[in-house]
Design a binder for these strands. Structure first.
Lengths: 142, 142
DNA sequence: TAATGTAATTGATAATGTCAACTATAATTC
DNA sequence: GAATTATAGTTGACATTATCAATTACATTA
């Protein structure tokens, strides 16, 4: 029972969180998926940022990142700039339009986080944070 | 920053957990996906269990459940029995073959949970559990 | 310089998730 | 009791997310 609860309640939490973010994202009226939005946030925060950076942060295949990045470029939310250190790679940069979107996203995120954590103290949150990152490390160190 | 960490670290944790369960599931040498395995566990624990029960527990579309259930039936892991209370619906029951698989799954789950929580105390675990279910409720009560 | 490694792209395909339409049965209401 | 409405499950279509293998172009190492 206890180990079932451990994983199932986690799955439920993340499922609910994704749903919430997805619904909020729909209100943005850009036609972007949750993964596109995550990628926008990553590019915005990590400067400079390459496709590989995104793939390794998300632990996803490069192929997926390439496709996500392509639609963001089509929508003029980000652009590719030459990477002076490596001609194989490019820096991904948020455009002006993209910056406006990132701001919207930040508001949505703040709303969702506030909703999710409304009756929790700072201590509880940081404890939760600490334990979940410990668990991640445990699973990833192989 | 802090709200980014809140959701991203959760996403990472669940991603790592899914990966781990997926890899372990591969060792079972039945050709089942992680979702099939979750469904097997649900049917095994909730008796009697209908397709709707699964859909509502997983918060998934009935269509997806129908398909998951169909492959489990094809593989003779579960069977459909008439539901005496409702002719529209059927009870899903784990077969003998299925029971053997559920036992294997339990071992795998136990391994994964042990790996994930190896350096955590009972108190930390139950605190984590408590906080994550609070967060779920917060998100789902709309 | 040759061999090996890495960044990114493309094609193929699997797994997951959602919506809408439909059938059959159940529950409610008039 | 018949008509309406709701529910359980199925099917088709399709979007999203994910992975693998092969390839090109450039970088690094031997």
């Amino acid at each position: 029972m206890s180990d079932r609860k451990s994983s199932e309640s986690l799955f439920h939490l993340v499922h609910a969180l994704k749903r919430q973010l997805f619904e909020q994202a729909e209100q943005l009226n850009v036609n972007l998926t949750p993964m596109h939005i995550r990628v926008m946030k990553i590019i915005d925060r990590k400067k400079p940022c390459t496709a590989i950076d995104i793939a390794s942060f998300l632990r996803r295949d490069k192929a997926q990142v390439t496709r996500l990045v392509n639609t963001l470029i089509e929508k003029d939310l980000i652009s590719k700039e030459p990477n002076p250190n490596d001609k194989r790679s490019q820096y991904l940069c948020v455009t002006e339009t993209g910056t406006a979107l990132v701001d919207e996203i930040a508001k949505i995120d703040a709303n969702t986080m506030q909703m999710m954590t409304k009756n929790l103290s700072e201590e509880e949150l940081s404890e939760f944070q600490r334990i979940s990152s410990l668990m991640s490390k445990n699973l990833e160190s192989r």
